[in-house]
Simulated assay, not measured.
Amino acid sequence: MQDATLTWRKSTRSGAAGHCVEVAAVPSAVLMRDSKDVAGPVLAFGDAGWARFIAGVRDGEFDRPRA
């Protein structure tokens, strides 16, 4: 979904390396995209899916294994 009226935000904790995602809210979903590929694919989460995703992030579910 590439809509010029969307307000995309990224975390203030994102560093200069640019390894970030951006989010935008629409009435029926929270949208997420790669900040390095703004014309690329967009994920859409409903309320329950967004809550589960955020809980997984907080719990470290998506952390990369350390070598």
Rank of each mutant, 00 (worst) to 15 (best):
M1D: 09
M1Y: 10
D3Q: 09
D3Y: 05
D3W: 03
L6P: 00
L6N: 00
L6I: 04
W8F: 07
W8S: 03
R9Y: 09
S11H: 08
S11Y: 07
T12S: 14
T12M: 07
R13E: 15
S14C: 15
S14I: 12
G15P: 00
A16Q: 12
A16E: 14
A16R: 05
A17S: 13
G18S: 02
G18Q: 04
C20F: 02
V21N: 00
V21Q: 02
V21M: 10
E22P: 01
E22L: 00
A24I: 06
A25P: 01
V26G: 02
V26W: 03
S28C: 07
A29R: 03
A29C: 11
A29T: 09
A29F: 06
R33I: 01
D34I: 13
D37H: 15
D37K: 13
D37S: 08
V38I: 14
V42L: 02
V42Q: 04
A44L: 06
A44I: 00
A44N: 03
A44C: 14
F45E: 04
G46H: 07
G46C: 04
G46S: 09
D47E: 13
A48N: 14
G49E: 13
W50T: 05
W50S: 13
W50V: 14
A51C: 15
R52K: 10
F53M: 02
F53A: 06
F53V: 06
A55V: 07
V57E: 03
V57Y: 02
V57I: 11
V57S: 11
R58M: 09
D59M: 04
G60A: 07
F62K: 01
D63G: 04
R64S: 08
P65W: 09
R66D: 14
R66M: 12
R66H: 12
R66Y: 12
A67P: 10
